[in-house]
Design a protein around this nucleic acid. Sequence first.
DNA 1: ATAGAGTGAATGAACGTTCAATCATAATCA
DNA 2: TGATTATGATTGAACGTTCATTCACTCTAT
Lengths: 192, 192
Amino acid sequence: MENQQDKKSQIIRSGLELINEHGFHGCPISQVAKKAGVAAGTIYTYFESKEEMIQGIFQDVIQKQHREVTSKDDPNLPFKERFFSFWDNLLEFYSENPDIQGFLEQFLKSPYNSEELQAKHPEWFQWTQNFYLDGIKEGAIKDLNPIILKILVNESAQSLAKVKKNFAQKLERNQVDLSSYPYLIWDAIKAN
Amino acid sequence: MENQQDKKSQIIRSGLELINEHGFHGCPISQVAKKAGVAAGTIYTYFESKEEMIQGIFQDVIQKQHREVTSKDDPNLPFKERFFSFWDNLLEFYSENPDIQGFLEQFLKSPYNSEELQAKHPEWFQWTQNFYLDGIKEGAIKDLNPIILKILVNESAQSLAKVKKNFAQKLERNQVDLSSYPYLIWDAIKAN
DNA sequence: ATAGAGTGAATGAACGTTCAATCATAATCA
DNA sequence: TGATTATGATTGAACGTTCATTCACTCTAT
């Protein structure tokens, strides 16, 4: 039923909001339920436990990110253009979905995250891997293990998104212009 | 009394261990006390609440990091050398203190962290700021707002330390050599 | 009539915090 | 010196709260 999907989505949305705002501490099942407009017990028809709910949220969020970012990539463009487009798309995605950004920020650094869990989402991992392999084949970027490139670029994007969201005042006060950031990253990975 | 300082240190050490291993969830006061070899109530002679304890741990950890890293810096060397030395020192510090690395990783991304709290530790902030200003004055790195440089370098160091600690197996399996990482970062910030 | 989604009060475990009692040490006095 | 008192750290059982989870029941759609 679409009604059922709606409920599950509502629960995920509530969890995202609460975790972004108050961290894992501040998202008791009771509140998730309240915000989602369902009873506490209902959550257990969609998830076996709170832990599974949080992992379900991660799954949902990674899929969304994958869909959003890959759909906007054009493999026929020169890699440099693809890179800057990738960067912009990722940051736009985070800026339009601050709850997702906040959730990922905390989840990825938490003990919830693990090698095994990441291995459950091969699409995103594979796609980024191939993305950088394309760049290497084209001779546009350094011939390094794509895992290193992935770490550098994706973690930097996360860092920048975090800073933009959480330290807005400080940036304003110090008149920091972050637009140069992707160029720095490009300088790091481009072939020399 | 030195005995009192010992107890406080023990409490901090226990908190660090538990948070690194199980996250903020997995460090109830009862366990912190047990691991530190004190009674639960004792913690409240050193900290007013659990929240203050965690912020106290942060304070302690930032001071240690500041002392460790700055003491090994030689401002008379060319900036390029200072940069690679800074990088090595920071990563060595994290690798020798995995509890600190794990704590910072989670704390910095958690709602515990805030602009106000960071402002309470101006030594570290000031020092890194001046470090990059030195590099700019020398003409060794790009003339950017030092805040951007700090974000890029420090967050990258955090990322690398995290990956080294948490994804050891994956790196092994894929024969990833991370030694090129600081050179990528240098390419990102060096003057062109 | 049936099946399954939805409910929310009930449950018991776990948590942070408190505090009366205990202990160790230092200070004071005879 | 030895006895007595004062000080403040330390203890851990007890308290009140909050939490995840359960389940007997109701509702809804077929």
